[in-house]
């Protein structure tokens, strides 16, 4: 089964029929709510780090008052969406791949086929919808947490003027940046889901437990790499 065959059939399944709603809701909750704890923790530290690094870099030539600008561009445009995608992608993608691979090796997918239910419609389509809708929400949430952390670090730890920080932030970050972030989120979400579903779906009964491990590993690595590369391409298109 080639990746392109899989993508083509997944797209047909995703856009020609209404996905089973209970499955969609379950995966939306799994992907979205399930990732919030992890995402909050990691983005908070990333936001603090971003401010500290920016400060360390700018203080060398006396530009520490430009921290708001740096955190706005570095964080909102780049770091938070792609980090949310990589972190949530690792978690969500691994879960999707592991659960589908497990269904394959225990013949549950074949059981669906024999019951006359298309696994593409029943299993793949709701996962694609759920993750591509959950990811932009997670990216937007990451923006909020990350900025709050950067602000905290800048103002309370590094002694940057709060008014100045906020003024610069407002000056540089517009609605179009947030919209771009949401757009990136949808693309990342779909990519993570399709890669994970592909690796999970491709496992076969004879692969056994090992197959689940391999599918999980590939889903994590491929989705992380693809999200980072896609981010570069999207940034080049959106900001050049």
């Amino acid at each position: 089964m080639s990746f392109f065959w899989f993508v083509r059939h997944a797209l047909v399944a995703q856009f020609t029929r209404v996905p089973p709603l209970d499955q969609f809701v379950r995966h939306m909750v799994d992907a979205g709510v399930g990732s919030i704890g992890l995402l909050t923790l990691l983005i908070f530290f990333a936001g603090l780090s971003l401010a500290v690094q920016g400060y360390a870099a700018f203080v060398r030539f006396g530009g520490q008052e430009f921290l708001g600008l740096f955190c706005g561009i570095g964080g909102i445009r780049e770091l938070y969406p792609v980090m949310a995608a990589v972190i949530c992608g690792a978690r969500i993608g691994a879960n999707l791949a592991a659960s589908l691979a497990n269904m394959q090796i225990s013949e549950q997918v074949e059981a669906l086929e024999v019951m006359g239910i298309d696994p593409m419609n029943y299993l793949v389509a709701p996962r694609l919808w759920a993750v591509s809708l959950a990811m932009p929400l997670l990216c937007a949430y990451a923006d909020v947490v990350g900025l709050a952390a950067s602000y905290l670090a800048a103002v309370h730890q590094l002694g940057v003027n709060p008014g100045n920080f906020m003024a610069q932030l407002r000056g540089i970050v517009g609605w179009e940046d947030l919209a771009a972030g949401v757009f990136k989120g949808v693309a990342f979400g779909w990519l993570v889901a399709i890669v994970a579903c592909y690796h999970g779906y491709r496992s076969a009964k004879r692969d056994g437990a090992e197959g689940v491990g391999i599918a999980t590993n590939r889903a994590i690595v491929h989705s992380a790499v693809l999200c980072i590369v896609l981010n570069m391409i999207l940034s080049a298109i959106l900001y050049v």
Partner: peptide
Amino acid sequence: FQDGALFD
């Protein structure tokens, strides 16, 4: 199916 293939 051989091992049942029940949905977990």
